[in-house]
């Protein structure tokens, strides 16, 4: 049966999904096969306990060598904003961004205190929210919220579609061409379309969610839909025929078949797909924010690029590191979830 879906997931390794260790150590990675998981060795930590030194020492040495090379080479790269900042300058900007956050908190507290005083004195009739510039942390939080919404939307759309495609070869054949064409489209191509459609659709003066936020989230959704969809389809299609036969014998209805047989056996695939989707979504989000000037980390990077001050490069590099760390953390969270659902599977 799996062969019927070979087209939709051409590079998914046809693998028995029940082989647990294999599933999460070398998960089937259709859309993002190139994104080799840096965490792969760390997963089997127990197996490495004997060689703890290697698993701990080697990464530390790797990072140190990288920092050393960066520090040594950066000053020799001369840009119009001065030499490329080294690790020390970048760390300094990290500290200064933290200080800005503290200063902004103080300003915020002061604003509310003064406002309360004015309201108490009767010179102001209405309480306002603090309207200061967003700090780096605010931008990080905005980005995380955006990617969360986009990811949830993508999952909510992709999993049912994937299940349907996995169960019905007819449906699969119907959506396959569209999926294949949509899959490689860059977020930057979606952006103008999404922007125009959303701008036209949300026309209330005070919408529930800011337009820019919805636009970013939808672009994330459109781009991160595909890994989950394809993996779900493959997972559903590769369900053991014997199980389906048993289901038939027990006269399970469609809903029972879905919840008792199909979902449990395709969960590892679905979660692998979701993990890939989240990774794609995070990468896409930064690009979308940058181009559309939607709030978030991408906007932070672009604003700093436009500032062109002597600290700008160091601040951008700091943001790059933070983006990488968050992407890594998101991947780890999904991996843990994936491990959890695979282990609890009872079939």
């Amino acid at each position: 049966m799996a062969t019927a879906y070979a087209d939709i997931a051409e590079d998914a390794r046809a693998k028995d999904p029940r082989d647990e260790a294999e599933t999460h150590a070398a998960s089937p990675e259709p859309a993002g096969a190139t994104r080799a998981s840096p965490a792969a060795p760390a997963w089997n930590m127990q197996a490495f306990v004997g060689r703890f030194g290697i698993s701990l020492l080697a990464p530390v040495i790797g990072v140190l060598v990288f920092l050393g090379a960066w520090a040594a080479l950066a000053p020799s790269v001369d840009t119009s904003l001065g030499a490329l900042p080294g690790p020390v300058e970048v760390a300094e900007q990290g500290v200064s961004l933290f200080e800005e956050w503290q200063a902004s908190n103080e300003a915020k507290a002061q604003f509310y205190a003064e406002q309360d005083a004015r309201i108490a004195a009767g010179t102001q009739t209405m309480a306002f929210d603090y309207a200061g510039p967003p700090t780096f942390l605010d931008q990080v939080i905005t980005s995380l919220e955006t990617v969360a919404l986009g990811f949830v939307l993508a999952t909510v759309v992709a999993v049912p579609l994937g299940l349907a495609a996995g169960l019905s070869p007819l449906f699969n054949a119907a959506i396959n061409p569209i999926v294949q064409i949509m899959k490689p489209v860059s977020p930057l191509a979606w952006l103008p379309i999404v922007t125009m459609v959303i701008s036209a659709m949300i026309d209330s003066a005070d919408p529930l969610l800011p337009k820019a936020f919805v636009i970013s989230a939808l672009v994330v959704m459109l781009c991160s839909l595909w890994p989950t969809l394809i993996n779900t389809a493959v997972g559903t299609a590769s369900i053991d025929k014997d199980l389906l036969n048993v289901g038939r014998v027990l006269k399970l209805n469609t809903f029972q078949k879905l919840t008792k047989l199909v979902l449990p056996s395709s969960l590892p695939y679905i979660f692998t797909g979701m993990r890939l989707s989240l990774g794609v979504g995070w990468m896409v989000l930064i690009a979308a924010e940058m181009l559309a000037q939607n709030p978030g980390l991408g906007k932070f990077v672009w604003d700093e690029f436009q500032n062109g001050s002597s600290q700008s490069l160091a601040r951008i590099m700091f943001a790059v590191i933070v983006i990488g760390l968050i992407g890594f953390a998101l991947d780890r969270i999904m991996m843990a979830l994936q491990g959890l659902v695979s282990r609890n599977r009872t079939i």
Partner: peptide, 26 residues
């Protein structure tokens, strides 16, 4: 049949998405 099911899920998906966005906004 598969198509019908897909649509049903999609509709439910949109509703869920709305709920999620409301929660997020909150």
């Amino acid at each position: 049949m598969g198509t019908d099911r897909g649509n049903g899920f999609k509709r439910r998906g949109v509703v869920a998405a709305l709920l999620v966005s409301v929660a997020l906004a909150g």
